[in-house]
Design a protein around this nucleic acid. Structure first.
Length: 797
DNA sequence: AGCACGCCGACT
DNA sequence: GTCGGCGTGCTC
């Protein structure tokens, strides 16, 4: 049972193959990519000179949620204008639609369809480069999404409507340039201004005003006042490519030997100009970013472009800053809320090859970087690379596919690689580059465990709730704070208590429209459903039997309260989705912590991601068990990733770090292995388990999720789809298994009943025909039940 | 997604 | 007798 890499699996009916057997309706046959004949030439080869020449046929992906490609005739006058990748206007149904010309169609569609002519070609030079067409086709096929929609979704808004090409004007853009290197103390009382300046410094000292005010609402005004104080300069600048600007900051001239070795290997790979995938496995603080930067520099020196994918860009201004300060306007930063016109501008600049480096989140995998030489996926294990609606793609996987199609070097970087990636290394598909030591030979933080069963937290003044901070943890905090250093407390749950339970009848307070417990938010004095947002006053008696309520389950609010109570002198803040209500607040809190105006930061994942706080020498995981209990085969892996990431926040400055992990499950594998800094051991063990149970990476999965208004109807549709799959199962020897239909782990959200079916098989190819059957059966599913197919699902919930 | 066709309730 | 509700079906 061998798992094949996404990219070397000949996906059924992919662009290289004839249309698949199971397909319904007439589709035009696919065109081989790569051969660049003009339409005239191709038409000539298809139909050699006959007296009455047949109509020239074009295969078009229509930007409507319909499957397949459509065949249109090409009017004489347009024959010479057509080139693959162009946006065209076609009659569709009663009206017209945007379409994408993909190439000539070999044969006409069925007898009973009336062929219509392409109405207009919307642009001279194709919006879509050839290699992207291939990638988009693959994505549509693999993730089962209409090709036209896939293509439209990959284009900037300006090009995704059926309008003529319009050149994005080389907009005059306002840049803010910092004139100081740090936030001066004089700004201490101007929080908003110091937040804006802090952001600016974090991204390398210079950034478009637009970008800053996206991250920090109202920053435009704040930067203007900073300008009047002489701390910032506002420049009007034509967005132009190829101009180096900004301060070139901190290009270290010395690399660690490991960084150097990785750099040499990548340079050699880039020189060959062929596809080569790498895993850059480097512990936190080992300087992976510098390796990416050097590789991108080398690609640039070869005249090649680079694509850098990062998780959640708003949270990693450091990385953006380093790219911007190293490459200046050679970089397009594709962040989540660029204005339409800016997005278009960047897109076209990349398409024309004027800007050669793109940095962005998962959707940037479709950025039209010309002459692509390098693709980097930073923190490749991060779950945010999987899109969870519409086209449910995994950007890391598509990055490898794209690299293969473009002949590029692909670097997947992580301290805790995804097991899929690791297995690809073991199988020899990816080459391994390792950075085992931190820069400046800083030691790894020591990690200790606190067994909560033995070290019972002692009651404080709060009488109604059991405390959660154990004596060793409190002692460590006091010691650290005593030295004037800072502490991070991590807990993956918001709110005060996560469960309200009746002492008499044992019924817990559930949301009326979701199958989850309501969380008590004491700061808001109400209970809140974290799935649908429903909130109501805190009931003081059980709604069923009027018995008294117990408050169980610990959230960040309670941890914060307990710290305040036990260490009254500490300056404590909480950082989670409830307290960081705006990007401004988030940045401000992080900045205040960085300025050491706070001693203790209590928070959820928000505190775990990539921040660099040199003053933090103690990191405490309040309860490692929360993410272990999730009913998902990746729960252990996620826990390991999370714990490692949090632990990596400790000891980033000159003082060594210490990590305390509280748990009720000291024997749980991820907890034990994190303590020992033993990723390899964990991975080995986990891989064996996955193999035994035939889970990824030793199998491919697809989930079919249903959501419906009526419980009965939803269940019956789920059973119906289950029957269809069962009837079409390949022989048992192929090893495809159906799990379910079953009620989803969260049985109801927003009043909608949820069911799911899970398919497991040795390869994606083994699953594809079944998915095609399911898809075909969807046409007679009542519209009250929504069904989605999720290929390579990221989570089972 | 649009935009039809299509077969059942309250209005001039 | 009509206007119109949005269920379902198709679009080269």
């Amino acid at each position: 049972m061998e798992q094949r890499a996404l990219w070397d699996e000949p996906a059924q009916g992919s662009s290289e193959e004839a249309p698949s057997s199971g397909s319904t309706g007439e589709r035009t046959s696919r065109v081989r990519p790569g051969r660049e004949l003009s339409l005239q030439q191709q038409a000539a080869t298809v139909a050699p000179a006959v007296s009455a020449s047949p109509p020239v046929l074009a295969s078009i992906a229509v930007a409507r949620p319909v499957r397949g490609e459509f065949t249109y005739s090409v009017p004489e006058s347009l024959v010479s204008q057509l080139a693959p990748g162009q946006r065209v206007l076609v009659p569709f149904g009663r009206g017209t639609a945007l379409g994408f010309y993909l190439g000539p169609a070999a044969r006409p569609p069925g007898e009973n369809v009336r062929l219509k002519p392409i109405q207009r070609v919307l642009e001279d030079s194709p919006s879509l480069p050839k290699d992207l067409i291939a990638l988009l086709r693959f994505a549509a096929e693999h993730y089962r999404y209409p090709l036209g929609e896939v293509i439209r979704g990959s284009l900037p808004p300006g090009l995704s409507k059926p309008v003529d090409e319009k050149e994005a004007k080389p907009d005059v853009q306002q840049f803010a340039v910092a004139l100081v290197n740090e936030v001066p103390p004089s700004l201490a009382r101007a929080h908003a201004q110091s937040a804006a300046l802090a952001y600016l410094l974090a991204v390398g000292g210079s950034a478009p005003l637009e970008e800053v005010s996206h991250a920090i609402p109202g920053a435009r005004a704040h930067l203007k006042s900073l300008a009047s104080k002489g701390l910032v300069r506002i420049e009007e600048k034509k967005l132009e490519a190829g101009v180096k600007e900004g301060l070139i900051q901190g290009r270290p001239d010395r690399l660690t030997p490991e960084q150097d070795a990785a750099g040499v290997t990548l340079r050699e790979a880039l020189d060959t100009g062929a596809f080569q995938p790498f895993l850059l496995h480097g512990v936190t603080g080992s300087g992976k970013t510098e390796v990416y930067l050097r590789a991108a520099e080398h690609a640039l020196s070869l005249g090649k472009g680079s694509l850098i994918l990062v998780p959640e860009i708003a949270l990693t201004p450091q990385l953006v800053g380093r790219f911007r300060s190293r490459f200046g306007s050679e970089v397009a930063v594709l962040h989540s809320a660029l204005k339409d016109r800016e997005r278009l501008f960047h897109w076209q600049a990349l398409r024309k090859g004027e800007v050669k480096i793109a940095v962005g989140v998962r959707s940037a995998v479709f950025a039209p970087v010309e002459n692509l030489g390098l693709i980097v996926v930073d923190e490749e294990h991060d779950p945010s690379f999987k899109q969870d609606d519409s086209l449910r793609y995994q950007a890391r996987d598509l990055a490898v596919v794209r690299g293969k199609q473009a002949g590029a070097v692909v670097v997947l970087g992580s301290a805790t690689p995804a097991l899929e990636t690791l297995e690809n290394v073991k199988k020899g598909r990816y080459r391994l580059l390792e950075l085992k030591r931190r820069v400046d030979d800083r030691p790894m933080p020591t990690i200790e465990m606190v067994d909560l069963r033995q070290e019972r937290p002692r009651d404080g003044m709060m009488t109604d709730e059991a405390p959660i901070l154990s004596p060793p943890l409190l002692a460590a905090m006091e010691e650290t704070l005593g030295r004037g250093q800072q502490v991070i407390l991590f807990l993956n749950r918001r709110g005060h208590s996560t469960v309200l339970l009746c002492e008499v009848c044992g019924v817990s307070l559930k949301c009326t429209s979701c199958d989850v417990c309501m969380t008590h938010h004491r700061s808001q004095n109400r209970v809140v459903c974290h799935y649908c947002g429903l909130a109501m006053p805190v009931p003081d008696r059980c709604l069923e039997c009027t018995g008294p309520m117990l408050k169980l389950g610990i959230g960040t609010e309670r941890v914060e309260a307990e710290v305040l109570e036990r260490i009254p002198t500490a300056r404590v803040a909480r950082l989670d989705r409830d307290s960081a209500t705006s990007a401004e607040k988030l940045t401000e809190m992080l900045a205040a912590f960085a300025r050491r105006e706070l001693d203790v930061l209590v928070g959820t994942q928000m505190v775990a991601k990539g921040h660099d706080f040199p003053g933090v020498t103690l990191v405490c995981v309040v309860m490692a068990d929360t993410s272990l209990a999730i009913p998902d085969f990746r729960a252990a892996e996620r826990t390991f990733h999370l714990l490692t990431q949090v632990a990596g926040r400790a000891g980033r400055g000159k003082d060594p770090g210490r990590v305390l992990v509280q748990t009720y499950n000291p024997d749980a594998e991820p907890v034990k292995r994190v303590l020992a800094h033993d990723f390899d051991g964990f991975a080995q063990q986990e891989l064996e388990w996955r193999k035994a149970l035939a889970y990824p990476p030793f199998a491919r999965m697809a989930s079919i999720r249903l959501e419906g208004e009526h419980p009965e109807q939803t269940a019956s549709v789920a059973r119906h789809l289950g029957n269809i799959i069962s009837r079409n199962m390949p022989p048992a020897s192929v090893g495809v298994r159906l799990l379910g239909p079953a009620v989803a782990p969260i049985a109801k959200i927003r009043g909608k009943t949820r069911w799911q079916l899970l398919l497991k098989g040795p390869t994606h190819v083994a699953l594809a025909p079944l998915l095609a059957r399911v898809e075909a059966a969807l046409v007679d599913v009542p519209s009250a039940v929504k069904v989605v197919i999720d290929v390579d699902p990221g989570a089972m919930l």
